[in-house]
């Protein structure tokens, strides 16, 4: 699996995997790949013990916690006692500490509310633009991420994949939720109205305005 990931992470950017093989969950963070798991076996160690495995100073640990919006007070908590989102953020902080070039983030955005989603989108963009990292997202709902993803990696049943950049390609949405903007424009088309294909909210609004005119 790691080799397959290496194959398509040739350029920096934010990509999303669709129909990804279940075995991807077996990956562990290392210098090349940081992995933010969806669900992990609960662990007895404290958050501080876990982050210290990165061999970084406490100062850097505090900094990474701040970046992923985790409170320092949680450092003494056992990972067991953290919520799902807090555990995911801990793994994100760890991935930043070990300075992985590629960060795989497994169903993270679906657990965040809109305000936090906006923050983490900005953080990911910064990681890509300033630190030249590659981000691979695994999600079940394209609504959370379609506005900032560069390309979609679509897997078939045999584990083969292809790159798709057209968000209106129906093949994408067998196992992932369609963005509301795409759903709306496809519905208008079905009703016989011509509207430009857009992804973002504001561009969709303008496209409807043009289509109506």
């Amino acid at each position: 699996m790691v080799l397959r990931l290496c194959n398509f992470v040739k350029e920096n950017g934010i990509n999303v995997l669709v129909n990804f093989p279940a075995s991807i969950d077996k990956m562990e963070s290392n210098e090349k790949f940081g992995y933010v798991h969806h669900r992990r076996e609960k662990k007895k160690e404290t958050l501080l013990d876990f982050l210290k495995l990165s061999n970084q100073t406490e100062e850097k640990i505090f900094k990474s916690l701040k970046l992923v919006k985790l409170n320092n007070e949680l450092l003494k908590e056992k990972l067991d006692n953290l919520t799902l989102v807090e555990r995911q953020k801990s793994e994100f902080a760890y991935a930043l500490l070990i300075k992985s070039n590629v960060i795989v983030i497994d169903r993270f955005f679906e657990n965040l509310i809109w305000g936090e989603q906006q923050y983490f989108k900005r953080l990911l963009r910064n990681l890509v633009e300033k630190q030249k990292k590659s981000i691979i997202l695994l999600e079940n709902d394209m609504n959370f991420i379609c506005e900032f993803v560069r390309k979609i990696i679509l897997f078939d049943n045999k584990g083969n994949y292809e790159e798709i950049s057209d968000f209106y390609d129906e093949r994408i949405y067998k196992n992932i939720r369609m963005p509301k903007t795409v759903e709306l424009i496809k519905y208008f088309e079905k009703k016989g109205h011509q509207v430009d294909h857009e992804i973002t909210f504001n561009e969709t609004l303008k496209a409807i305005y043009r289509g109506r005119a």
């Binding site: 809109w114 305000g115 509301k180 759903e183 709306l184 208008f188 609004l205 305005y209 109506r212």
Partner: peptide, 29 residues
């Protein structure tokens, strides 16, 4: 509180501002 409006309500309000509709719609239909 960290929430955006539901998509169709939000789109409705914006379309109303553009003068394309005169009341709120809660779904694509």
């Amino acid at each position: 509180l960290g929430y955006n409006l539901p998509f169709y309500l939000n789109m409705s309000l914006q379309l109303e501002l553009y003068g394309m509709i005169d009341k709120i719609g809660y779904n694509k239909e």
